[in-house]
Design a protein around this nucleic acid. Structure first.
Lengths: 206, 206
DNA sequence: TGCCAGTGTGGCACGACGTGCCACATAGAA
DNA sequence: TTCTATGTGGCACGTCGTGCCACACTGGCA
């Protein structure tokens, strides 16, 4: 385990999360364009200048809540045995989309409302796509390493795209489905696994 | 055919194209963040205020040159016989990615340099993803109509995603490949067709 | 306990973005 | 020629994001 984080480190993490939550709540309710960075900063109890030390952009403030950024892939891959990407990727998908205890307890999780806002709001959609793009880039490197030097770069690219698209589509479809618990199509993880299975089945192994 | 466009209409089209070209040249050379809207406007011979009447955003100024936006899909679909999406989509891909005479003559075409800038520059990448997202949305409606009411919405979604991803990946891969004429992998259209074939082969028909 | 270096924070000013508003100029119809 | 509609430029404004400096506090050391 990691040694006790210092007081300052904990404070920083708290501030970061406070800003993210304040931003998410306001964005989901009013739309990103009608919320000023000033308002988010005030709600989180920091100055405007400090807000921009934590996040490069007003919209980026919600990114930590998504939990599917490039950083998360590191953990997911570490927790999953390396081997054939075709079997490793579905496990990674589960790891990313099924909220673990810690993450959920700490509120580091998307909701339907936040996802809807991320997809429908033009400014947030840019963040959404950037996060997915970063995932694809990260995954491309991982797959390339698993496959070895003999792999066709184009195949690698297709596989990485299929995986990140599967996650994206799974979450988008789920966010649009009716709000009964997990009805009409299943959980995000299940949707994403299905999407990956269908998209990747035509990508030949080598 | 369309009746003779009025003088004003022609002037507007010229201005629009002049702005797009001025923006593309500067973005590709210096990066979007180091080019002011003011500079683009001046280079195109219009005021800053007029610039923002043509484009909602500084970065959006290059979008007309991409030729794969939602508007282009209308033409492509009109030129292709409706029927099974699986056979119609590759034709649409060709129509979008193989420069027609008119478009090329008018300079309405991407180059490797512009594409590279679109993908590598953070601000332009947002536009790139937005354009692709709009394509996917448009295509989703088209496929849904072709398939009829019995189609599974999730399948429709997968098919549309496979198609737009195929185009995106084809162009991205081509822009990164070495600059010999069309060496090392083929034309963007060929790459995109191959990508679509592999990604869509696992998406069952119904 | 008292001092000190390192680091996180706030305030301020600034260039750039994007928009509402109004005044002017020009194309095309009467 | 006169009139109307539409495209353009100028100006002011709120907001964004950043560089710079001064201050406060944490954590280590004597």
């Amino acid at each position: 385990m990691e040694s006790a984080p210092s007081l300052t480190a904990r404070r920083k993490a708290d501030t970061r999360l406070a800003i993210a939550r304040a931003a998410a709540a306001r964005f989901a309710e009013h739309g990103a364009s009608r919320v000023t960075a000033e308002a988010i900063a005030a709600a989180a109890g920091v100055s405007l200048r400090t807000f921009y030390r934590y996040f490069p952009t007003k919209e980026d403030a919600v990114a930590p809540l998504l939990g599917i950024g490039a950083a998360s892939w590191q953990d997911a891959l570490a927790a999953s045995p390396p081997g054939d990407p075709r079997t490793a990727i579905p496990e990674i998908i589960d790891h990313l989309l099924i909220p673990a205890g810690d993450a959920e307890r700490e509120g580091l999780r998307w909701t339907r409302g936040l996802l809807r806002a991320m997809i429908e709001d033009p400014a947030l959609r840019a963040v959404w796509h950037r996060v997915n793009h970063d995932s694809e880039t990260r995954l491309r490197a991982i797959v390339a390493e698993l496959e070895g030097e003999t792999a066709d770069p184009f195949q690698v690219r297709l596989l990485a795209a299929a995986a990140t698209d599967a996650i994206r589509i799974g979450l988008e479809h789920w966010s649009e489905s009716d709000a009964d618990p997990d009805g009409s199509g299943g959980t995000p993880a299940a949707l994403a696994r299905r999407a990956f299975a269908e998209l990747s089945s035509g990508v030949s192994e080598r």
